[in-house]
Simulated scan of single mutants.
Amino acid sequence: MQDEPEVAVLRYGHRPGRDDRMTTHVGLTARALGADRVVFPDNAGQSQETVEDITGRFGGPFEVELTDALNATIRNWEGTVVHLTMYGERVQDVEGEIREAHREEPLLVVVGGEKVPFEVYEGADWNVGVTNQPHSEVAGLAVFLDRLFDGRELEREWEDADRQVIPMATGKKVVDPDEES
């Protein structure tokens, strides 16, 4: 979010063919709910293209990167690292501390795909559970970002959008924001 340290989301692991949709949705959720960028594994190029396309059409700023160094990204992060896992501390118990840390330094949110190695748990400043029940990593990311930003991300304005969705009780309306006055 503007005027705050960066929030980046790292998708840890990607199985082509199996995880394409989920990895893409991690990126779209990160973008829509206030993160500044997402980092995908280097074999998730299709997800990168999709998220960049959505950003181009619906506005930014938002960056998408690929890396072959997932562990190094965590290890070398200069800021706070939060790993979302159903085995972590309850989000409602640690969200205030994380929000306070984020006021001072960048935040990396690690979202697992396949089985996450123990070194990710050890490398995180916080291992955080959004419920301690099995659920989608996309749902966990959405709840976490909403808690981090206290709902402010829902009021975000998008720059350089080719399309803008107009909220309606029923129906669908998408306009060119340059033509809407």
Score class of each variant (00 low, 15 high):
Ala139Asn: 07
Trp126Asp: 12
His102Leu: 07
Gln48His: 10
Glu95Phe: 08
Ala30Thr: 14
Val91Glu: 04
Met1Ala: 13
Gly34Trp: 04
Arg90Phe: 02
Tyr87Ala: 05
Val64Thr: 15
Gly129Ser: 15
Tyr87Pro: 00
Ala161Trp: 01
Gly123Trp: 04
Glu52Tyr: 03
Thr29Lys: 10
Glu137Gly: 15
Glu63Ala: 13
Thr73Ile: 04
Pro134Asp: 07
Pro134Met: 10
Arg99His: 12
Gln46Pro: 06
His135Asn: 13
Ser136Met: 13
Gly140Val: 06
Thr73Gln: 13
Arg147Trp: 03
Ser47Lys: 06
Thr23Tyr: 04
Met1Asp: 08
Arg90Pro: 01
Arg147Tyr: 10
Thr85Asp: 10
Val175Gln: 06
Asp150Val: 00
Ser181Arg: 11
Asp20Tyr: 08
Arg75Asn: 05
Val109Glu: 05
Leu107Pro: 09
Glu153Ser: 11
Val128Asp: 06
Val39Ile: 15
Leu10Ser: 06
Ala72Cys: 02
Glu4Cys: 12
Arg90Asp: 06
Asn132Gln: 15
Ala124Lys: 04
Met22Asn: 13
Val39Ala: 11
Ala139Ile: 14
Glu78Ser: 14
Ala32Cys: 14
Ala161Tyr: 01
Gln133Lys: 12
Arg57Phe: 11
Arg147Gln: 12
Gly96Asn: 08
Val7Ser: 03
Val51Ser: 11
Asn43Ser: 10
Glu159Thr: 09
Glu97Thr: 08
Asp19Val: 03
Gly113Ser: 08
Ala142Gly: 13
Glu4Ala: 09
Glu78Gly: 07
Glu119Ala: 07
Asp150Tyr: 00
Gly151Trp: 02
Asp93Gln: 04
Asp3Thr: 11
Asp19Phe: 05
Ala161Pro: 00
Ala32Ile: 13
Met168Arg: 15
Glu100Pro: 05
Lys115Pro: 07
Gly13Phe: 09
Phe62Ser: 02
Val165Ala: 10
Val7His: 09
Val81Gln: 01
Gly17Cys: 09
Gly129Trp: 07
Val91Lys: 01
Leu145Ser: 03
Pro167Val: 05
Gly79Pro: 07
Val38Phe: 07
Asp19Asn: 06
Glu105Cys: 09
Leu33Ile: 09
Arg57Leu: 10
Asp150Trp: 00
Asp162Gly: 01
Ala101Pro: 03
Ala8Tyr: 04
Glu179Trp: 04
Arg99Gln: 12
Asp42Ala: 14
Pro5Glu: 11
Glu6Cys: 13
